[in-house]
Amino acid sequence: MKIWVVAEMHQGTLAPTALELLARARELGDVEAIALGGGAKAAAATLGKHGAKVVHVNEDAAFDDFIAEPATDALAELYKQGAPDLMLFGFTPDSRDVAGRLAARLEVGLISNAADVAAKDGGFVAKVPYFGGAKIASMKANQKPAIILVRPKSFEASEVGGTAEIKDLAVTIDAGSKRSHIVERVVEASEKVKLEDARVVISGGRGMGGPDNFPLLEDLAGALGGAVGASRAVVDAGWVPYSMQVGQTGKSVRPGVYIAVGISGAMQHTVGMKASKVIIAINKDAEAPIMKMADLGVVGDALKIVPALTAAVKAKKR
């Protein structure tokens, strides 16, 4: 089986999802990765160590500066030279844009939001959270190539050693594909510890009462060396930036400890954090769904519990 892993690049750096996808892809067949944009050649070495046999690269700045269309052109061009059996993308905003356009151009369907991929009867089956996450559907791809988008953090990246052959992917990106122009990038997140990498994540929901109470979570995170996340309800309400959102449409995290504070535990939230090793929930409602999945649930007022816990952690450190 010939498998493509579309390795997302973020202004010169390789996105972690690429290496996660390789961990599974290399079990399914011969893997070729595609890296587009600045830093692609340098990334090829890492992709090789993680199991890519070939890495197709093109460092045209258009891939960094314009949304979706240049990458779609490049992948369609490579496709003309030889179709894979399976194309894997991360289920991330940038890859979603590209995968959707490419599927429409190639006139094949795709499977989105998958949590796992396996080979079956000469084809591929994806596991997709369904029904708000309560069920897992096994979806068989009926067309070739199968295009599957996999949620970040579904697989654990690991090196297997190896060197990829680097091939230049020749494609001209003409003006017709340079339309959605990224003219500025604004960073709002001033996180000391990255949410995705933190050992401890403390997330706040509507039960925090208002944005003015979020510093209580920052204090606890500071004491524990962790990062602060949030539910979509408070992101939509404008209390905190989207960069802090955990869940289906936010980030997926799997820290050692996840503390959900004033979060009810809707499926769309828990799909992004239920792989955490230990879950602690603080909620005034003993019946909130999050309490049923927590290793420890504490029933009470978050605004009292969080400061008390912060004080205890600080006292312990002294």
Partner: peptide
């Protein structure tokens, strides 16, 4: 159809 649902399982619950 691009895909067929072959089966449904309960999500792993903690």
């Amino acid at each position: 159809a691009a895909e067929t649902i072959e089966g449904l399982a309960e999500a792993e619950t903690r």
